[in-house]
């Protein structure tokens, strides 16, 4: 099976890995919300946030290179959207230049907004990466269920998670078969081949779904899943949550009054 890219590093051991998934979820949500609510260009506050997340990342002992490479996932969207920001905001002009018949000018306000959005989205993504690379998906789901996420959604997600690996393998096999038969030719032909592959994948998935359901019904499935709950909220979790929330509140109070 070639699925080592899914929740890599989540089964290592560190202080962060040992925390209850619920406390990590709540802390991540609080952190992202605090980052989102910080007014733009609060550079000092962004630095403080960065120090918190960097300390937690160091504690978790997840490789730094992995985390920084992972955080690049936001780049395409950032480029798509943020690149327009500096050009079209009103305000004092920082510098301007001419390209052919276009006169473009960057304003201070626009640049400030761009850097703030970049900083915010990078901080948020770091905290999400930390959450998912220290928590296995199964325990994340258990945590979500205890935090009152609807049961149906949790069951759907856990079903999906179970079959991602099988279907990923299926896709890899199909890709291998295709590539060993020389995947070339015109673009339209390549597209129709990919279309056929997806069609085959759909039919196989659908039939697998029916077989799985039949197997479940014959074993007494009635629309509910019953699992053993083995999560426990330790003193460490209480300390962690209290510390994180206190720090976030302090940072924001500090930012309000100074």
């Amino acid at each position: 099976m070639k699925h080592s890219f899914i929740d890599q590093y989540s089964n290592r051991d560190s202080l962060i890995h040992r925390l209850d998934p619920r406390s990590k979820l709540v802390a991540t949500l609080a952190f992202i919300a605090a980052v989102a609510l910080t007014p733009s260009a609060g550079w000092l506050v962004y630095c403080l946030y960065f120090i918190i997340i960097a300390a937690l990342i160091l504690l978790s002992r997840v490789p730094l290179l992995y985390i920084s490479r992972r955080s690049l996932v936001i780049i395409p969207f950032v480029l798509l959207v943020a690149i327009f920001i500096p050009f079209f905001k009103e305000g004092e002009v920082a510098f301007g230049f001419n390209i052919w018949a276009w006169h473009l000018s960057l304003t201070h306000n626009g640049l400030q907004l761009l850097w703030s959005i970049l900083a915010k989205s990078w901080l948020s993504i770091l905290s999400l990466i930390l959450l998912t690379s220290t928590t296995g998906f199964a325990s994340l789901l258990k945590g979500l269920e205890q935090l009152r996420m609807p049961r149906v959604m949790v069951m759907l997600l856990s079903f999906m998670y179970r079959y991602i690996f099988l279907l990923t393998d299926e896709v890899m096999r199909m890709k291998q078969a295709r590539d060993s038969r020389n995947f070339g030719g015109k673009r339209l032909r390549q597209m129709s081949i990919v279309g056929n592959m997806i069609g085959t994948l759909f039919i196989r998935s659908y039939e697998r779904g029916e077989r799985v359901y039949a197997a479940m019904v014959s074993r007494g499935f009635d629309g509910h899943s019953r699992t053993l709950d083995r999560l426990h909220f330790s003193r460490l979790d209480t300390c962690f949550i209290t510390a994180i929330i206190l720090v976030l509140v302090c940072i924001n109070l500090f930012n309000l009054y100074y």
Binding site: V152, M155, L156, L157, S158, F159, M160, Y161, R162, Y163, I164, L166, L167, T168, E170, V171, K175, R187, Q190, M191, V194, M197, I198, L201, F202, S205, Y206, R208, G209, E210, V212, Y213, M216, G223
Partner: peptide, 21 residues
């Protein structure tokens, strides 16, 4: 609907791994 939708979600996930030029 639960097993079916779950597996078909995994299908969409897997189908998104197939790139085309």
């Amino acid at each position: 609907h639960i097993p079916m939708m779950g597996i078909l979600a995994a299908f969409v996930f897997a189908a998104q791994m197939l790139n085309f030029p």
